[in-house]
Nucleic acid binder design. Structure first.
Lengths: 224, 224
DNA sequence: AATCTATTTCAAACTTTTTTCACATATTCT
DNA sequence: AGAATATGTGAAAAAAGTTTGAAATAGATT
């Protein structure tokens, strides 16, 4: 499953470089060039991990971290040019999960990110509720009207993306790329079949949440 | 949705080649053979992405990029024959988003373009409001007086272009080229029919936003 | 190897959209 | 006003996209 990573750095070139690598590694990237914007995005977007530069004009990384920790347990990796022990300690005390010292290689950064994501994947508690559907990420369970339903892998991934990006219209190609992977060769009709079974399993009422966007693909939205 | 891409290269044959591929991939293409012209076009036209050759007589690609960055965050992909490492860094420092090394294949170029466009599409939350009409690009939904209306692909594309270029008069040919593509064979009266249904669906008040420009085509403008 | 489940493919039925066409209506020009 | 040209409209044909059931294929499990 694709992850959304927020890159916070006030140096544009450094941010771009990091973004490029993250993007090529298959992550979704959001960015902010200041602390306030970063905090706002954490509040409003569905972000999985933050790469946070420590030295920024205005609010510094530690302050941003402290603020975010008042309302979110989202993993934070500090990017820092400093290498004093005190920073590590300070950052971790404030709730950071890891830190990387500039300059760093793409490989190193990816390794840290993957390590953290793996770790939180086990510990994190994600729970989405949209209309009468509830999705508990940890247990991978879906309930409709509090009744458990059994989904296959593809159905589950579809619903996961739909619920995460409620209201967004997806083309079949986008869904294939995200769930099946860039290298998928088969036809786009496959998506239709999975949509069919997913609608069926979601039942009369919740099945209608999946709307057909004619000529494009599908959109998930609570309809009354 | 069709994107407008500006190709900047002083070698005519290279430019033509790139343009052809872009056109076949369904993009709308503009071109410039020097930096000054490119900058002017970015200022005055509504461009979604720039393919910028680094080595040009007169202003080079990096200088052009630097200049553009003083007033626009538009994605820029460098085309370069120069060595990778140094250019990547320099280009990205100046605000470029990616770069492609010549010679490149059409597939590679398209992949880069799509990657950038996708990223931009994800990061930017586009929402247009013109008069009583609102258009949310992500969900592909249109509301008139906060009431959702259901548009077909062609109607949607028409309204999208109209709202994007509010006030501009379009000929039927221009609309056909942008929405239907260069290989469209049918007659121009098809546009009229779609305008008719679009006006109908927009309703009494908003339908009047689409004005007929006699002898030319149509213009979208808020009238009071 | 046999059995089950999940996934993909396929094609027919169905739905919606797009195009065409004929005629009504409107605008411009002489 | 009348002719010529351009646009508006409703209905029907044509094209395109979606849904669905069933069958084939692939993957896992026993």
């Amino acid at each position: 499953m694709m992850t959304t990573i927020l890159v916070v750095d006030d140096e544009r070139e450094m941010r771009k470089l990091v973004e490029l690598h993250l993007y090529q590694a298959g992550h979704h990237v959001l960015h902010a060039d200041n602390g306030e914007d970063a905090i706002e995005q954490v509040r409003t977007s569905n972000i999985d991990l933050i790469l946070l530069d420590v030295m920024m004009s205005g609010m510094n990384g530690f302050e941003v971290c402290e603020k975010i920790r008042t309302f979110s347990p989202i993993p934070i990796i500090f990017l820092t040019a400093l290498d004093a022990k005190t920073d590590l300690v300070k950052g971790l005390k404030l709730g950071g999960d890891d830190y990387v010292i500039k300059p760093f290689t793409a490989i190193e950064l990816m390794a840290r990110i993957n390590a953290i994501l793996r770790r939180v994947g086990i510990n994190s508690y994600e729970h989405h509720k949209v209309g009468i559907i509830e999705h508990d990420v940890v247990s991978r369970q879906i309930t409709v009207n509090n009744e458990k339903i059994q989904l296959t892998l593809k159905e589950y991934e579809l619903l996961h993306i739909f619920m995460k990006y409620e209201g967004k219209a997806f083309s079949r190609e986008q869904l294939l790329e995200r769930i099946w992977g860039m290298d998928y060769e088969g036809g786009t009709r496959t998506v239709d079949t999975h949509i069919k079974t997913l609608r069926l399993k979601l039942g009369e009422q919740a099945g209608k949440y999946i709307e057909t966007v004619w000529g494009i693909g599908y959109r998930f939205e609570v309809v009354e």
